[in-house]
Amino acid sequence: MSFFHDLPEQPERPRQSRAVQPGWFGPPSDEVPGIARVGGFAYKSQRMVIVLKLVEVYSSGCLLDLVWSVRRGNESDQEWREIVEESYNHPRSSLDTRTGLELGVAFTDGRKAVAAIHGPAAFDDPDDVTGPVLTTLGGGGGSNNDEYVQFTGRYWLWPLPEEDTTFVVRWRALGVPESSLAVSGDQFGEALGHVQKYWNG
């Protein structure tokens, strides 16, 4: 007889249903996104670029992949260290969105949203959100050396735009004035046609 033969069985526990996240919360966890390869400059100068590299399109919204890069000029070592530190785009305050890189979106019907560190759950009734909502999801890594610095950031936009959409950026500390990039609604629609669900039922 096995030593483990008479150990008690684990009791059955009630099966927990998966909580349904609201659309503004973030990308669905059960979809393969379609890709809108926008590949456009929201801002470009001799020293700095801010690029909307691509957009992952889901059934409920889209994930923006943003890249920014600064090229060193004649700054001293200390000045360059300050630029590198600013380029990390650390939030100075959880309630202050107007520091570092500012990102917003404008729809053709006049609606707009500005990227915030917290989603609507922090400030509004989460069951009564009409959007649009633009949420900061964090960075995706970066690199720097004595010649350039480059970082990435990810942002969730809900709901998915059905019309032409303008992305607006500004970064006062790095000398970036308010600049914009327009993306056509057709690009979102085409990528939406490539979204795949994990499960059919």
Rank of each mutant, 00 (worst) to 15 (best):
R18Q: 05
P159L: 02
D65N: 15
E56D: 15
A122S: 12
T130Q: 12
A122W: 12
F167T: 06
L101W: 13
N145A: 04
G185A: 07
G73P: 01
G138K: 08
A173F: 00
E12M: 01
M48Y: 09
G153D: 07
Y198S: 06
N144H: 14
R154S: 05
N89C: 03
W80C: 08
G39T: 10
V114R: 15
Y58P: 02
Q150R: 14
F188M: 08
A173P: 01
L101N: 09
G39E: 15
R18N: 00
F41P: 05
P177M: 05
I35D: 13
V183W: 01
W68V: 12
S29A: 15
H5F: 00
W68M: 13
E75P: 04
I35A: 14
K53S: 14
W158E: 03
G104S: 15
R37M: 06
L52F: 11
H90N: 07
S60D: 12
V169A: 12
H5N: 08
F167N: 03
L174H: 03
R15V: 03
S17Q: 08
S180D: 07
A106S: 12
E190D: 11
P27A: 04
A122Y: 09
S59E: 13
L157V: 02
G39Q: 14
L137G: 02
Q150N: 05
W68Y: 15
R81T: 09
V49T: 15
L54R: 15
N144V: 01
R72D: 07
Y43W: 14
P11H: 02
M48H: 11
Q21G: 00
Y88S: 00
H194I: 01
F25L: 06
E162T: 11
F107P: 03
V114P: 01
I83Q: 06
R111K: 15
T165G: 03
R170Q: 13
A36F: 04
P27K: 04
G39S: 07
H5I: 00
E147W: 04
G119S: 10
G201T: 04
E162A: 09
D146A: 11
R172I: 03
K112V: 01
H118R: 13
S184K: 12
W158H: 05
G61Y: 07
E12Q: 08
G142P: 04
E147V: 05
A42Q: 13
S143Q: 13
W199L: 13
S45R: 10
T99G: 10
G73M: 06
Y155T: 10
S184M: 01
K53E: 12
Y43M: 11
Q150I: 08
L52W: 04
P33W: 08
W80Y: 05
H90L: 06
T130D: 11
I117D: 03
P8L: 01
T135K: 14
